[in-house]
Amino acid sequence: MTALAPVLEVADLRVAFRSGIDTIAAVDGVSLAIRAGETVGIVGESGSGKSTLARALIGLLPKGAAAITRGDIRANGVPVPQTALARLRGRVIAMVFQDPLSYLNPLMTAGRQIAESVRRHDPGAAVTARVEELLAAVKLPAAARSFYPHELSGGMRQRVLLAIALGCRPQLLVADEPTTALDATTQEEILALIREVVGSLGMALLLISHDLAVVSTMCERVHVMYRGRLVESGAAARIFAAPRHPYTRGLLNAARAARDENGRFVVIEGDAGAPVERAGCPFAIRCDDASERCRAEAPPAFSVADFADHSVHCWRVEDRVDA
């Protein structure tokens, strides 16, 4: 345990969306920490709030429609108020998104966009040399700098986006579904590239994905989110080997295409349902194990004994081992 403060620390974060007169909490009481050089993954399906969380961290929430209504964010130990989150962009946090085409300016060549990032976040650097360096780091030929985004393939665009992010020399790279829009064969390449780059530069990585397999190969630690809340957190290896939360187990069964004795896939019944505020555990209505207490009261974080860094938000796990 180092004495350094985590690169990014989030405590009890709540992000609410306003829809007409209703407010919906897309993120509800999430706490996590990312240390220097750590690879952390957030796993969740649609409606889990994982993308909202990512955007909240760098101040990219749609103004007027959504805001952080509770909780603190600290960068390197220093608290960051909501209005100052944009300052984290660049030297502290850089982000790579799912659909590179929408995040690249169609009117500027790749080289110019990377140069822009360097100029803005790395003042004093020799721009042309640095752009070449970055293109090499993402394994693109130097000639790529004069190409426009629409002339590049999906995988190449994602590499350009990565180069732009690296141009900031960030401490933390946040990748939100970076390979979801890519072909299976390209996905492997991009993920391998991210792994290599993050490792060699000693950057921390926050990888957000609905794909457990992706997260399991890329991250040391994993947080599982469901409807805005954390349900399980811990070392990736342990979580995938022995998941404690019923939702995590369900996700793993689905990812492994697990079948039952009738040849049917083992599924989590029902679906997430409409995004309304509900008392109790958000997973209770779909859980085979749910008790009255589950429906009434949202479970806090419990840790799994012997593994202080493995936590579960579930009443039922505790009950099972009632001494």
């Binding site: 969306f17 306003r18 829809s19 007409g20 919906i24 897309a26 409606g47 709030g49 994982k50 993308s51 909202t52 969380l53 955007r55 749609p62 007027g64 429609a65 995004p275």
Partner: peptide
Amino acid sequence: AALNPRAKERAA
């Protein structure tokens, strides 16, 4: 404008 609203409300 009424027939073509901008989708301002999107929960992730």
